[in-house]
């Protein structure tokens, strides 16, 4: 685990002033689109291509300001598992869930701070994310 910690310190040093958003989305083109838009608005974006990667980041990254996750992704875990990991590991951190399949119900309420149905244009999604970040300075962790 030591090499990972060293890498994370480096990542943390690169840009201490911009919000850090974890974006978990398995469709690379959708991910690029959203990440580009968020970067254009001033965010640092950590791109995870599946839930396992996202959960690793949730557990280990020094700073996160918001998590955005798709629900259906390849592998044994999905976006709701990412949201569960956020609640467990970093309870103050807000989670945006986006899906074209999930109909959120009462069971999901405690996991999801904002639900966006897919497809949502990347500029609208990024604007909604920025508003959440601005409204929640306490999200900054570590």
């Amino acid at each position: 685990m030591q090499p990972m910690a060293a890498k994370l310190i480096l990542w943390h040093e690169l840009d201490a002033d911009r919000p850090v958003v974890l974006l978990a989305e398995d469709e690379p083109i959708i991910r690029f689109d959203i990440a580009d838009e968020l970067r254009r608005l001033g965010c640092q974006v950590i791109e995870a291509s599946n839930a396992d990667e996202a959960i690793d980041i949730v557990k280990s990254t020094a700073r996160l300001d918001l998590v955005v996750t798709d629900v259906r992704m390849p592998g044994n875990r999905d976006g709701l598992d990412v949201a569960r990991a956020v609640r467990q590991e970093r309870p103050g951190l807000m989670t945006v869930v986006m899906s074209g399949h999930l109909a959120p119900n009462d069971e999901h309420n405690h996991l999801i701070d904002l639900f966006l149905s897919k497809p949502t244009p990347s500029d609208k999604l990024a604007t909604a994310i920025m508003e959440m970040i601005k409204a929640s300075p306490a999200n900054r962790d570590g």
Partner: peptide
């Protein structure tokens, strides 16, 4: 490796490149 990828990508963005990230050959 998401962390390796992120660190290198962010470094190259810092150098002025536009950087896309893929976790697999298929992506």
């Amino acid at each position: 490796d998401v962390i390796t990828r992120t660190v290198i990508a962010e470094y190259l963005r810092h150098c002025g490149f536009r950087v896309l990230e893929a976790g697999t050959g298929t992506e």
